[in-house]
Amino acid sequence: MTWIVVGASTGLGRALSECLAQEGKSLLLVSRDPRDLNSLASDLRIRFEAEVSCVCYDAEDHVGLANLLGGSIADGNSVEGIMFPIGYVEAGDRCDLSSIDSERLVKVNFLSIVSVISKFLPGMIEEGKGVLVGFGSIAGTRGRAGNAVYSATKRALQSYFESLRHRCERNGLLIQFYILGYMDSNLAFGQNLLLPKADPGQIAKSIIANLRKGGGTRFLPAFWKSICLLVRAIPWFIFKRMQF
């Protein structure tokens, strides 16, 4: 039984890979740069004696990625779960991003996940088990000028995971979706933020602990739930004046 981590080499993906390896899980790690991925795989094999294999591929080619992953799981070795801590932001994403950049954001942040899930979902449904974990962002709470396409992909992903949970409700699959607050990753490095940045290692530990719980959407850190509710409740005449 293998866990697949798509977007494994840095930040939350790397922390999740470490936690899963520590739990003794067999891993298939996916990321773009073989230098990062092979180093991480060696580290996990040595420190945790984990069984780790790698797929180096650019998620922009989402169809190719899904096919490659489908072929990487050998016959008789089923997938226990897939985590998708993949995503990136594009500088200058303020509603006028070029179509090429927008398309890449949609492909990497949304379509890559949809394609991989569609590849593995029939098998999981047939087996009546499997875990799928997606990651949104508080940026998707309410549309604003900054990170426009990025936020849209994250909100689209949330909707897709809601559908997925609805679809799999009676099939024995566990579908979890996390809306993540500020994290101390390179996405937020150097930004002066109003609220503290969470350690990806701690977030990963919470996610692994929650695998024993039910499906649904959760906020991490949990206090972001109240803040997002508040942001949604702000009347437009105030919201339009806010710069964040």
Partner: peptide, 10 residues
Amino acid sequence: QCVRPDRYRD
């Protein structure tokens, strides 16, 4: 100024 590279390409 400080940077915190976390990938080889950085």
